[in-house]
Write a protein that binds this DNA or RNA. Structure first.
Length: 483
RNA sequence: GGCCCGUUAGUCUAGCGGUUAGGACGUCGGCCUCUCACGCCGAAAACAUGGGUUCAAGUCCCGUACGGGUCACCA
């Protein structure tokens, strides 16, 4: 009985995929998944000067990495291939549809040609400014019935009185006086349609039932509502989600650190952590009707998000993005996830360091141990940092560290460690303890000396794990110069 | 400036007329410990403001302040 839910994420391919956009997409995706609906990815590339195919790739890769799969939209890798019944999902390829709709509005007298030139308009705007009154197009061309041969932009005829009401799922009821809206341009002089026109036509054509987008679009919506009606369409539900701010409460941008989704990948965050963090920014999941009241309840699965998500519960106010919270969530996921779920993402870190071949050459058991003994790192960058010495060899140790830990007292013990052959954790532990007892040493002293020999630094995974990862051959090789 | 929106600790938030205003991150203190980290225990920390309405207001209404969005032949 109810129409199946259709949501859409409609970025313009003009640069990186912003984390704010990803959150909007996440909400669209969660809502569609929650209701067994359809999630569409549509490319809004009508800004010819800034849109590129490379940027479309960036969007596809970002969406793919963060795990937001779309049911209809571009086929990744081919900017002109699409899947879904409402294609093409790229606005520049949909011009015929727009032209037909514009013609229809013109025929019905709901839109009209306007011959005012851009220069003329600019001058009038300037004058209005100078006189301190707001500039609005005065509708002077409304009834001129200009001939198609004269160069004209096309404007939508807006109501003169009354108010236009937007029932927004997150903002509530917003009413604006019709008198504050002027007849806006739906097609430029060169015939190309404008953004506000295209979204409406596309959303209707694609059957979008819930328009979820950033709240910077709120002001546009009343205009669009008039267009929906002019075209004889039913209104979709609208949900305007607040934007994400940086620490200084300004719009989140590169100045604040990571703003692009690929930076989060590069900085070692897991997609599942990014998803949870973003979802909880401005929305509080209610499991069994109540918000989280413990650490355990804070850490929800995608499944739980999908089962409880509701557009109506989204916060009205903008929220500051807290990277520390993401870090914490990321750490929790690293602790809880099986190594097989972490490995592919950790591999990206090796790839960035040119060490992927070395990583690939290791066995599954080795990988499981490497990741398993590093479960308390906050990010995969940190994990790779503490593991890198396995592939690259020890760094040159600091003089002070050598003086402090490579003492005459421990050196003989080092020699005995080098002689050990059984690297199974428990055996190694027992053997080392025997060595300690024989020399009257503390594990503390020996471990730091070994770390220094193995890594050149005083930080490594637990020492027995470190030895197991290194293997006897490498252990002996790295110990050699110290004994 | 016009129109619109927002305001609970440093941050994200719970709250939907009666609570010692709850949780999480972060911060600070302590414990644990083979390094880093984890973990555990504890602490400090909030209803922007002024008027109403009401027996009772973080919760409802109005104003003020502050913040934001938008006013293009950009999206």
């Amino acid at each position: 009985m109810q129409k199946p839910v259709v949501t859409r994420f409609a970025p313009s391919p003009t640069g990186m995929l912003h984390i704010g956009g990803v959150r909007t997409a996440l909400f669209c995706w969660l809502y569609a998944r929650r209701h067994n609906g359809t999630f569409i990815l549509r490319v809004e590339d009508t800004d010819l000067t800034r849109s590129t195919d490379d940027n479309i790739r960036i969007i596809e890769e970002g969406m793919d990495w963060v795990g937001l799969d779309w049911d209809e939209g571009p086929v990744p890798g081919d900017p002109n291939a699409f899947r879904g019944p409402h294609g093409p999902y790229r606005q520049m390829l949909r011009m015929d549809l727009y032209r037909a709709k514009i013609a229809e509005l013109l025929d019905k007298g709901l839109a009209y040609r306007c011959e005012c030139s851009r220069e003329d308009l600019d001058a009038r705007r300037k004058q209005a400014d100078a006189e301190g009154r707001p500039f609005m197009y005065d509708g002077r061309c409304r009834d001129k019935h200009l001939d198609p041969s004269t160069p004209c932009a096309i404007r939508l005829r807006m109501p003169d009185e009354g108010e236009i009401v937007l029932e927004d799922l997150v903002k509530g009821r917003i009413a604006v006086p019709a008198s504050s809206l002027d007849d806006w341009i739906i097609a430029r002089q060169d015939g190309t349609p404008t953004y506000n026109f295209c979204v409406v036509v596309d959303d209707v054509d694609m059957g979008v039932t819930h328009v979820v987008r950033g709240d910077d679009h709120v002001a546009n919506t009343p205009k669009q509502i008039v267009l929906y009606r002019a075209l004889g369409y039913d209104l979709p539900a609208f949900a305007h989600v607040p934007m994400i701010l940086g620490k200084d409460k300004q719009k989140l941008s590169k100045r604040h650190g990571a703003a692009s989704i690929t930076e989060f990948r590069d900085e070692g965050y897991l997609p599942v952590a990014v998803r949870l963090c973003l979802a909880k920014l401005g929305w509080t999941p209610k499991v069994d009707g109540k918000a989280a009241e413990s650490v355990e309840e804070e850490l929800l699965t995608d499944r739980q998000l999908m089962e409880t998500f509701d557009l109506g519960e989204i916060q009205k106010a903008a929220a500051v993005f807290d990277i520390d919270k993401l870090k914490w969530i990321n750490q929790k996921f690293i602790q809880r996830l099986d190594w097989t779920e972490i490995a592919p993402h950790l591999r990206w870190q090796w790839r960035m360091r040119g060490l992927e071949a070395a990583w690939d050459a290791t066995s599954d058991d080795w990988k499981a141990l490497a990741i398993g003994c590093n479960k308390n790192r906050a990010t995969l960058v940190e994990m790779a940092n503490t593991l890198a010495f396995l592939f690259t060899g020890p760094e040159a140790p600091a003089e002070a560290d050598v003086a402090k830990f490579m003492t005459p007292a421990v050196r003989p013990a080092l020699r005995e460690v080098a002689a050990l052959t059984d690297y199974a954790h428990d055996a190694l532990k027992a053997d080392v303890e025997a060595i300690l007892a024989r020399h009257g040493l503390k594990l503390k002293d020996l471990a730091q000396a070994l770390r220094l020999a193995f890594t050149g630094k005083l930080v490594s995974p637990p020492i027995f794990d470190t030895m197991a990862l290194l293997g006897r051959e490498a252990v002996c090789a790295r110990l050699e110069k110290w004994i």
